[in-house]
């Protein structure tokens, strides 16, 4: 809009209650639309501008820093109860840009774009020299650990056969040499004890996800696998508009949305593009 029309923004303080409220709505939106990785929590509001919006309302333009929590995106635990991933666990931060519309006292996210980045190995080493560091999710040791853990889980589990859905996080422990892997599984229409051909097992229409943590330790003459899984209640799928950007299999999730053109009235229905960055 030409400046001659007098459209100007205001800049409340970043900790102003109205800005904090809009930021929380933005972070909730981010978490509701994540399909991979972990929920993020608000850490700091970097910048805030408030633009008038015609014919009604205001648009909050926010720059926000987030931190990864230990709750997976599919974990129903409320964000307030999700612990922040500590530096010693190799923390991950997110940098987000949001546009939030305030109209009729309702806050609606118009645009969301986030990039997440793991802390540097050097910073983790400053905290402790033997902290396990993140390693790529496609590392053969990681994939092997997840598959071995899932096989062990299915062998000891009464009920549905579970399939691997996502490897979410992986770290290497130097001594004793072990691989820590967190992964997501989902129930199929097969019974675990009766499965002969896993490729014939299909995920249930009403998805039932589980979140597993495993430690695979190298031993003399073999390996030892410890695995614990939490199976969540069945969840309805969050409708996801078709993405414009090709999905990749990188480990850290991000939400990115193109800004839709502002309609003349009424809250817009934002489209979501899910991408992944490291």
């Amino acid at each position: 809009v030409p400046h001659s029309l007098g459209l100007v923004y205001r800049q409340p303080a970043c900790d102003d209650p109205e800005i904090e409220k809009a930021a929380q709505v933005a972070v909730d939106y981010l978490n509701q639309h994540l399909l991979h990785g972990y929920k993020h929590t608000l850490n700091q509001i970097d910048k805030a501008k408030v633009w008038p919006r015609r014919p009604f309302g205001e648009v909050y333009e926010l720059e926000i820093d987030t931190l990864e929590t230990t709750c997976h995106a599919r974990d129903p635990t409320p964000l307030a109860n999700c612990p922040v991933r500590q530096v010693s666990q190799h923390a991950v931060e997110g940098d987000c840009d949001f546009h939030v519309l305030k109209q009729d006292n309702q806050l609606t996210v118009l645009h969301a774009k986030c990039h997440s980045t793991p802390d540097s190995a050097e910073d983790v080493r400053k905290v402790c020299s033997d902290c396990p560091l993140l390693i790529p999710l496609n590392d053969t040791r990681v994939v092997h650990a997840a598959q071995a853990a899932l096989a062990a889980f299915n062998a000891r589990h009464n009920g549905s056969y579970f399939k691997l859905v996502e490897i979410s996080r992986a770290q290497l422990v130097p001594l004793p040499e072990s691989t820590l892997v967190e992964f997501v599984v989902a129930a199929t229409d097969c019974v675990a004890k009766e499965v002969i051909e896993p490729t014939n097992c299909n995920l249930l229409a009403e998805k039932q996800y589980g979140f597993c943590k495993t430690t695979l330790t190298e031993k003399l003459g073999g390996e030892e696998v410890a695995v614990t899984c939490t199976v969540f209640h069945t969840q309805p799928e969050v409708p996801q508009p078709q993405p414009d950007v090709a999905k990749t299999a990188d480990p850290i999730p991000a939400v990115e949305q193109p800004a839709p053109a502002l309609p003349s009235a009424g809250p817009p229905a934002p489209s979501v593009t899910l991408g992944h960055v490291m």
Binding site: Q11, P12, A13, D16, E20, N43, Q44, I45, D46, D119
Partner: peptide, 27 residues
Amino acid sequence: KVTHPGAAGPGGPLVRPCPGKVRHFKL
């Protein structure tokens, strides 16, 4: 036309409007 409500008024305390407080820790 841009306002800076966090800036100090005459005799008032200087408040830095942005960035806001760090809730956990900075990387």
